[in-house]
């Protein structure tokens, strides 16, 4: 499956990665070669094979419904780039 410039731009937008044209051109090239290597998978017949999401066949353990966490806002917001009145600030979001 060939990779187009538009595919890279689209992925970059979905991933919110700023790319200039020069970067984008380089990534089209790199990603194209990676996908070429990945395309080797298509040669393998996997009809009827169930996808494997986890290496072990174990199931989800459930947690008791208990409040175990207390307020650590001050501590957590020490590493935040912009806060005011306990809120994280971002450029205005237009609804």
């Amino acid at each position: 499956m060939a990779l187009e410039h538009a595919d890279v731009q689209r992925a970059a937008h979905l991933a919110r990665l700023g790319l200039n044209d020069e970067d984008a051109a380089r990534y089209v090239d790199d990603l194209g070669r990676i996908l070429e290597m990945v395309d080797m998978l298509q040669a393998l017949d996997t009809e009827g094979i169930a996808p494997l999401a986890h290496p072990l066949d174990v199931t989800q353990r459930l947690r008791a419904d208990e409040v175990t966490e207390s307020d650590q806002r001050e501590r957590f917001q020490r590493c935040a780039p912009a806060v005011e009145d306990g809120l994280y600030l971002v450029p205005r979001v237009v609804e």
Binding site: V8, R10, A11, L14, L31, L35, T46, A50, P51, L52
Partner: peptide, 22 residues
């Protein structure tokens, strides 16, 4: 970028699902 591309619509089965089968 690779991960975003392979998970995106139209590619998921050919890449992600296939890789999980493998």
């Amino acid at each position: 970028l690779i991960g975003t591309h392979t998970l995106s619509e139209g590619f998921f089965d050919a890449y992600y699902k296939k890789a999980q089968q493998v």
